[in-house]
Amino acid sequence: MSCGISLVKYLLFLFNLLCSICGILLIVFGILLFSNTHNIDDIAEAVQTQQVPITMIVLGSVILLISFFGCCGAIRESYCMSMTYSVLLFVLMIGQLALVIYMWVQKDRYLVMMGDVVEKAWARRTHKADYMDAIQISMECCGKNSYIDYSFQGYYPPSCCKGNNCSIENVYRRGCKQAFVDFWDKNSDVIKYAGLVVAAIEFVGFIFACCLANNIRNYRRRSAY
């Protein structure tokens, strides 16, 4: 093979090796988050309440699978694996672009869905306080609509304040539903443009993989004569 194709080969290998590590880390973190589930009676309930860790595990598995074909196809100079990697990467790129376009066109609907996340967390707070507490700590908010939502119980949970002693003087005033929606509204453009950049990188990887696969096929044809 030429020096240029050899360079492409090792660049693809290193790129997919890094992607494999990222995929493994996503799976590990997803499993760790999922293992923190408390009082789950069945799998259906687990799937419903642990969407984030499940998404991390699935995404990590997909990245690991695609990276496996990329690494093996490049280092073993396998035409079949390189083409499989190209197809899977192309499908992933198309799916990612579809998600970005969906977020672009259906932004208002997407923000409503984010508000529903807090609604569900608030509805389950009596037996699954972990989720509402996590939102209140990360968003620095209190209650679904405001801190007044806790007035009926006569005290505020520790996650509603920065200090250990949570009282009316130091409780977060902002409601979590609005805080959560504002957060995603503010960062939706960052996510969309980041998705486009990643898709562009994936497209370059797709072109490189196709070039490598084509060169491998031509090299084997020439060697057969």
Rank of each mutant, 00 (worst) to 15 (best):
W184H: 15
E169N: 14
F206K: 08
A200Q: 07
D185W: 03
F180M: 08
A194L: 10
K177R: 15
F203C: 13
Y193S: 01
L196S: 00
A179G: 08
L196Q: 07
N170Q: 08
F183P: 01
S188L: 11
F183T: 02
E169A: 13
G195A: 07
A199E: 09
V171D: 12
R174W: 05
R173P: 02
E169V: 14
V198E: 06
V181W: 05
C211R: 09
F203E: 03
Y172C: 02
K186I: 00
A179S: 15
F206S: 07
A200G: 14
F183E: 03
S188M: 09
F208W: 06
F180N: 02
S188E: 01
V198A: 06
K192L: 04
V181M: 03
E202Y: 07
F183H: 00
W184Y: 14
F203M: 14
A179Y: 02
S188F: 02
F208H: 03
Y172D: 05
F183I: 03
K177T: 14
L196E: 02
K186N: 09
A179W: 03
S188W: 01
N170Y: 12
D182E: 15
L196A: 13
F203H: 08
G175M: 05
R173E: 13
Q178S: 13
F206A: 11
E169L: 15
K192E: 03
G175I: 06
A209E: 04
I191F: 14
N187M: 05
K177M: 15
F180C: 06
N187E: 10
A209K: 05
A209D: 06
S188Y: 00
F180R: 00
F180G: 01
I207Q: 06
V204R: 09
W184N: 09
A200H: 12
V190T: 12
C210L: 13
R173G: 15
